[in-house]
Computed example of a mutant assay.
Amino acid sequence: MLSPSSSAKRSRSRFAIPAVAYSATPVKLFANISEKHPSATVTQKAPSAIAQRLPDPKSTERTQRFREFELDGRVYVVTGGAQGLGLGLAEAVVEAGGHVYCLDVQGKPNETFLDTQQRLAQCYGATLHYRQVDVQHAEQLETVISAIGEKHSRMDGLIAAAAIQRVEPALTYPPEQMTKMMNVNYGGVYYSAVACARQMIKYKTAGSMLLVGSMSGLNANKGLTSSVYNSSKAAVIQLGRSLAMEWGQIIDGKAIRVNVLSPGNIMTPMVEQNFKDDPSLKETWERANMMGRLSEVREYRGAALFMLSDASSFMTGSNLVIDGGYTAW
């Protein structure tokens, strides 16, 4: 673990840019005119809003670039964070300075998580933690998230990425499996958001939530019989709008912002299993979007950071679709 002082130094260096100076003293424009007409001296205009934020050129302090994206000291919960998209987005939050708690049903995180945790601890002043939680159970989520909030006396947001998938024709879909999928993919998102919101209200830390939907909530994927999965993601998109409305002015007139990120086809362990079950599916999906390829987890990091940070401070109730043009045909 890095000390607070070393953390601050790393934060400054991560986004530091050289100081830029401006002159506040009168200057002479068009010297030849001024020499003939001394009254033609022109005074420089007051510095712009951008210039006013620049440091004193004599100061040893350095300014930061894109400070709106900084998450230093903030606390976030990521469900489904043991692997795949959840872990990839959690990593981005830690790199931006956030303290992240990954919640997943697995008894312990896999090697990928542990490798990521060790690497981040060595490079950044933030932290990555793991807690075993089944998002189907509201009481478990409430207990764990409440303890996180109490430890830090704050809660700044959520990435709700926990989800499962079952490829099955509707005519043979087992009723108990439909119930389980809706409990995880929709209920888990709902319970996670409510538990985090309670902590955000308790500690008066208005922040942002990112609910992971899918382009599958907007259309039927070619070659994939997953009616229940698609329906669960459509429900998440609608949930984002509804919670954004409820929590738009809930903390002393400030918002808990709620937005949905709807990815296209991503190379994750879940999708790799789809390709094992149906080898022809990969080519079908590649042809289905405008870029002719599948996405990778890293291509959603910037969007997540934008949606959680102050860079999107006037954004709520939105659904950001990143699908390589799949739904734009």
Rank of each mutant, 00 (worst) to 15 (best):
G80T: 08
D104P: 05
G107A: 14
Q106D: 12
V105T: 12
G107M: 14
K108S: 15
A82I: 00
L87V: 08
G97L: 00
D104W: 09
C102T: 11
V105H: 08
A96R: 13
A82H: 03
L89C: 11
H99Q: 06
A96F: 00
H99K: 12
Q83G: 00
V94I: 04
G98E: 03
E91C: 08
Q106S: 14
V94T: 03
V100P: 10
A96Q: 13
K108I: 15
V94D: 01
V105P: 05
A96N: 02
A82D: 11
G80I: 07
T79Q: 04
Y101C: 01
L87D: 05
A90Q: 08
H99W: 01
D104R: 08
V78G: 00
V78P: 01
C102I: 10
G88A: 13
E91A: 09
Y101F: 14
A82W: 08
V93H: 02
T79R: 02
G98C: 00
V100C: 07
V105N: 10
G107I: 11
G81R: 09
G88S: 12
K108V: 15
G98L: 02
E91K: 13
D104A: 14
G81S: 13
H99I: 15
Q106Y: 10
G98A: 14
L87H: 06
G86T: 10
A82V: 01
V93T: 05
Q83H: 13
H99S: 09
K108F: 14
